[in-house]
Design a protein around this nucleic acid. Structure first.
Lengths: 158, 158
DNA sequence: TAATATGGACAACGAAGTTGTCTATATGGT
DNA sequence: ACCATATAGACAACTTCGTTGTCCATATTA
């Protein structure tokens, strides 16, 4: 039993959102400074979703929770920006395999590193113990694959 | 010092996002069942932002972190749905004051109640103590006014 | 081999932002 | 009191990024 009154219920989701945005905006800013200014914040996750082995538009859409067409458009963008390339699959002539280019790999590595750095900073602010508690709490409250980005334009940069 | 390895840095933001969406989707579902099926999840926050005293499009846009035009369009939608109405300000003929209708007030009350219920459920899952820790942690990590919804389409329902 | 399923491309559309411009009204300095 | 500037709102054109629907090529299976 706590004697303090509980905060209003709508604060928690707003904080979750704010915290998320804080991380993403930071990532975006840093990765822009490291030579990838064209990247939308979302793309860091897309790279993670493509992974080092490549994937297809359909599979990517499934992973991200959007239609294959939407995934295809994202890929088209990333292709124009030089982050991914499309090859063909010798084992299945229908499939066009999407792979990260060197630039894409570089970006993936940087985004992973920056994410880790940001986590380290949060760990310094909060204490590693407390941060893990927080992560554990979130895992219990929102279990499951966190990798669904089916949140149209949650990242929209102007 | 923890002996377990830290999770990859990108997990935390994804969990934050997932947790946020979980709450919002639940709210959306419940409020639809209570007679407001046309509402987009975002609207609960918009009602909160309008508040009981009403506001204007410009002020609303400022609060939500979007352009006044965008806020105006949202208001137009909500007006068509019967949740808000626009009146004039006798003290300033330029201003059109946006106020919640009875239906809007009903919805605001319900969304506040449901948010509280959801928080109570999380409190039951996690323990009130732990939930407060989590909220405190988030406040420290992402301080400031959480009321900025300047995240275009973060709520987009299909 | 024929029927079905799947991957990808293209087009039309919609939702929800943006900027730019215009008008009406307030407000403040001279 | 008057003109310059700032602000509120409306309207239009555009962008972004999603959706659905359709179509074709290729695999898979009965």
């Amino acid at each position: 039993m706590s004697s303090e009154p509980a905060p209003p219920g709508f604060e928690l989701p707003l904080r979750l959102l704010l915290a998320f945005r804080t991380i993403i905006d930071e990532l975006h800013e840093r990765i822009a400074r490291e030579g990838h200014p064209d990247l939308r914040p979302m793309h860091g996750f897309v790279f993670q979703a493509i992974g080092p082995h490549g994937t297809t538009a359909v599979e990517l859409g499934r992973r991200l929770g959007v239609s294959k067409q939407a995934a295809g458009k994202t890929v088209e963008n990333l292709e124009q920006l030089g982050y991914v390339e499309r090859g063909s699959d010798p084992a299945d002539a229908r499939r066009k395999v999407i792979r990260l280019t060197d630039r894409g790999v570089d970006c993936l590595a940087r985004s992973a590193r920056i994410f880790d750095e940001l986590r380290a900073e949060w760990s310094a602010t909060l204490g590693e113990e407390e941060l893990r508690r927080l992560e554990d709490g979130l895992r219990r409250l929102a279990p499951g694959d966190p990798f669904r980005l089916d949140t149209p334009r949650w990242f929209g940069s102007p």
